[in-house]
């Protein structure tokens, strides 16, 4: 039984290694401080923080009901989409995807409205990306922190 268990383990580890090689090789890595916008089968790389930054201030609430003050420089998601030539009305919703593939959806109305969805520089995980250039999605008005996405690497625009 032990031998059979060992064989199963080795097979599964090898299969996971093989698939991880395929996955990591096929993965498009955005440069630090930039993200990819996927729109109509195209992938456009943009640098959100080359736009003029505005003050992002407000309060977000996590799942436990604890409030956290946000005060940072950032840009609205709509402004970032406009860098890729996408206008309001071109899409139904967008998905902000992090490096570990966690994703949050934002409706077109939420993206278009002022004061709801922003991208800010995240210094909290500076260890991951030198200079704290990782990008964080902040969504105001939610009752939990599910859409506060850390290390955003891609925005998928869906019609």
């Amino acid at each position: 039984m032990t031998k059979r268990n060992l064989v199963i383990t080795v097979i599964l580890v090898l299969a996971a290694t093989l698939i991880s090689v395929f996955y990591l090789r096929g993965r498009t890595q955005s440069p630090r401080g930039s993200l990819n916008i996927c729109y109509e089968d195209k992938e456009i790389s943009v640098e959100p923080f080359t736009l003029s930054l505005s003050e992002v201030k407000g309060t977000v609430v996590n799942g436990k009901g604890e409030e956290k003050e946000i005060s940072a420089k950032g840009v609205s998601v709509m402004d970032v989409l406009s860098l890729a030539g996408i206008e309001n009305g071109d899409f139904a919703y967008v998905r902000a995807v992090s490096s570990d593939e966690y994703a949050a959806e934002l409706l077109a109305q939420e993206v278009a409205d002022d004061g709801i969805a922003f991208l800010i520089r995240d210094s909290s995980d500076g260890s991951k990306k030198v200079g704290g250039l990782s990008i964080r999605l902040v969504v105001f008005g939610d009752s939990n922190s599910k859409r506060q996405v850390k290390d955003v690497v891609r925005i998928e625009v869906v019609k």
Binding site: L12, A15, A16, I19, Y23, E101, A103
Partner: peptide, 25 residues
């Protein structure tokens, strides 16, 4: 939560299965 698809889902399942089998030993 994650709504993963394609290769990343396959990798997630395989890594879970592989770590499950290691913990199984």
């Amino acid at each position: 939560v994650f709504r993963l698809r394609g290769l990343v889902l396959l990798l997630y399942v395989l890594v879970s299965a592989a770590s499950g089998s290691l913990c199984g030993l």
